[in-house]
């Protein structure tokens, strides 16, 4: 009996951690870009098919240093969430990201990636245009870049869709973020053939970013300015991020 309650509690806690990371009040990539960086100039399009708004990017200044910043944006309200496809990139998003990374290398700019995605988008168009190929290429691109790369897991790092922008020289993560091999819903669908068992999957996956820190996929955890960490006032997250980013650059 007690073990059943224990399991239920563990599942509830794990699911709460995932929900906390998905809380719409947490800082989004665009908020961090506009507060921690200056003179951000957005560059759009993958030059192959289209422009994916789930990934935003362009050169900006971080303190005195010019950098290339690339972020996965989830959106903040119904309209912008739809526009940014809930932070789930299509292949065009990854191809835009690799285009910007190669451009950064050309002009010797460090690359800063802000990771926040439940997973890469799963859909017919995404598969037709080579989702796996776009991610695989982004991984190779990040490995081969001769300019410093920094990734920050803002809230949610899900699957290869997150890793594609998180294979950096230095990987930071905000506290209370999650980083998983697949979102709990997908994991439940794969293991139990039932997406409804996401609580069970969440508990089994140990989604907290500290697990990734333990195995060395994340180098540093950034403590949040406020304990609950869900203030709309993004200035409360920007200062520690900016400090950490400047240090990492």
């Amino acid at each position: 009996m007690s073990s059943t309650t224990e399991t239920a509690e563990r599942e509830a806690a794990a699911l709460a951690a995932v929900e906390l990371a998905r809380n719409p009040e947490r800082p989004r990539a665009l908020q961090v870009i506009t507060t921690a960086f200056d003179q951000w100039t957005e560059l759009r399009g993958d030059r192959l098919f289209g422009d994916d708004r789930a990934v935003v990017g362009g050169p900006a200044r971080l303190g005195s240093q010019a950098v290339m910043v690339i972020g996965q944006e989830k959106g903040t309200d119904a309209m912008s969430r739809a526009l940014h496809n809930f932070g789930m990139p299509h292949p065009e998003g990854y191809r835009k990201a690799t285009r910007l990374m190669r451009q950064a290398e050309k002009f010797s700019l460090p690359v800063v990636c802000l990771v926040d995605t439940p997973a890469a988008y799963a859909g017919i168009g995404a598969e037709e245009r080579g989702q796996a190929w776009a991610i695989a290429d982004s991984l190779l691109c990040m490995l081969g870049l001769r300019t410093p790369t920094i990734s920050v897991i803002l809230s949610e790092g899900g699957s290869g869709g997150a890793l594609a922008l998180a294979l950096a020289d230095r990987v930071l993560a905000l506290e209370n973020a999650v980083y998983t091999v697949a979102p709990p819903e997908t994991c439940a669908a794969i293991l139990y053939r039932d997406a409804g068992q996401r609580a069970r999957a969440a508990a089994a996956l140990r989604p907290g970013v500290d697990t990734a820190y333990e195995i060395g996929l994340v180098d540093e955890l950034i403590p949040r300015a406020s304990r609950c960490g869900h203030s709309r006032d993004s200035r409360r997250v920007a200062p520690p991020s900016r400090r950490a980013l400047c240090r990492a650059c």
């Binding site: 890793l163 294979l167 293991l191 140990r206 990734a212 996929l217």
Partner: peptide
Amino acid sequence: MQEGIASLAQMARCS
């Protein structure tokens, strides 16, 4: 899935 995030890291290792 059984290895969670450690399995994701293998995508990096293999790349």
